[in-house]
Simulated assay, not measured.
Amino acid sequence: MRHCIYPGTFDPITYGHLDVLSRAAKLFDKVTVAVAESAGKAPLFTAEQRVEMITPNLVKWPHVTVTTFRGLLVEFCMAQKGDAIIRGLRALSDFEFEFNMALMNRHLEPKMETLFVMPNEQFSYTSSTLVKQVAKFGGDVKHFVPPNVAAALSRAFAPVRT
């Protein structure tokens, strides 16, 4: 059975992430979405909240699961008996960072392969950071994230009443 790990912060998960996931689900017998508990970022949502937002969006892929991880990705992948890491590349600007990370992971664990997948072009400009900015200022994010995620963003950025 071929197993890939799809790591990320997913703060929050977007339709672009789900597009990459759908491509991974076609290529692998098992896919684990690995939510980084702390990736050197200050996430809006806790790791548990991110898992809760992702889970209902996996129902069409029975061979896809979601969990959290901390520490080195390659160590997590080896513990999960993963065959590959899958990463989405939206634009050329993503390539240098992802390429360097893949080389470091290969150095740390030569058996672990990294595969790059391009999402549909309609998602090439979508990022979790941009989605959070739009939501923060009251913009409509329903074209970028699933309904449950849009609702969570709305709650997170709701005006504080005094």
Score class of each variant (00 low, 15 high):
residue 111 K to Y: 03
residue 27 L to T: 04
residue 157 F to C: 09
residue 53 M to D: 05
residue 83 D to C: 02
residue 59 V to A: 15
residue 56 P to A: 14
residue 92 L to C: 10
residue 136 K to D: 12
residue 45 F to A: 10
residue 89 L to C: 13
residue 27 L to S: 09
residue 20 V to R: 00
residue 114 T to H: 04
residue 115 L to A: 11
residue 3 H to C: 00
residue 1 M to N: 06
residue 64 V to A: 07
residue 111 K to I: 10
residue 143 H to C: 13
residue 143 H to Y: 12
residue 14 T to Y: 08
residue 40 G to W: 11
residue 119 P to F: 03
residue 21 L to W: 02
residue 129 T to G: 05
residue 96 E to C: 12
residue 161 R to T: 15
residue 70 R to G: 12
residue 25 A to L: 02
residue 37 E to G: 14
residue 139 G to H: 13
residue 117 V to D: 07
residue 67 T to H: 05
residue 49 Q to E: 15
residue 26 K to H: 11
residue 67 T to W: 05
residue 154 S to G: 12
residue 32 T to E: 00
residue 25 A to E: 00
residue 46 T to L: 05
residue 160 V to D: 02
residue 118 M to G: 08
residue 119 P to M: 06
residue 90 R to M: 06
residue 84 A to Q: 01
residue 124 S to P: 09
residue 49 Q to I: 07
residue 149 V to C: 09
residue 52 E to F: 03
residue 141 V to P: 01
residue 140 D to C: 01
residue 24 A to I: 10
residue 158 A to P: 02
residue 51 V to D: 05
residue 129 T to Q: 04
residue 67 T to Y: 04
residue 99 F to S: 11
residue 140 D to H: 03
residue 102 A to R: 11
residue 114 T to G: 03
residue 94 D to L: 01
residue 53 M to Y: 06
residue 60 K to F: 04
residue 20 V to W: 00
residue 71 G to D: 06
residue 26 K to F: 04
residue 58 L to W: 09
residue 30 K to Q: 14
residue 118 M to I: 14
residue 97 F to R: 14
residue 55 T to V: 15
residue 43 P to V: 10
residue 75 E to G: 09
residue 54 I to L: 11
residue 91 A to L: 10
residue 72 L to W: 06
residue 61 W to H: 10
residue 95 F to P: 08
residue 63 H to E: 01
residue 49 Q to G: 06
residue 118 M to P: 04
residue 31 V to I: 12
residue 60 K to V: 14
residue 120 N to D: 15
residue 62 P to Q: 04
residue 157 F to A: 11
residue 151 A to F: 08
residue 27 L to N: 01
residue 85 I to F: 11
residue 78 M to E: 13
residue 107 H to G: 07
residue 12 P to Q: 00
residue 8 G to Y: 05
residue 88 G to H: 02
residue 148 N to V: 12
residue 139 G to Q: 07
residue 57 N to H: 08
residue 155 R to F: 08
residue 110 P to A: 03
residue 18 L to W: 00
residue 9 T to D: 00
residue 47 A to N: 06
residue 9 T to F: 00
residue 114 T to R: 11
residue 121 E to W: 07
residue 22 S to V: 05
residue 161 R to V: 15
residue 110 P to V: 05
residue 71 G to V: 09
residue 122 Q to H: 09
residue 59 V to Q: 09
residue 51 V to S: 03
residue 144 F to Y: 15
residue 149 V to E: 03
residue 41 K to F: 09
residue 35 V to Q: 05
residue 147 P to M: 12
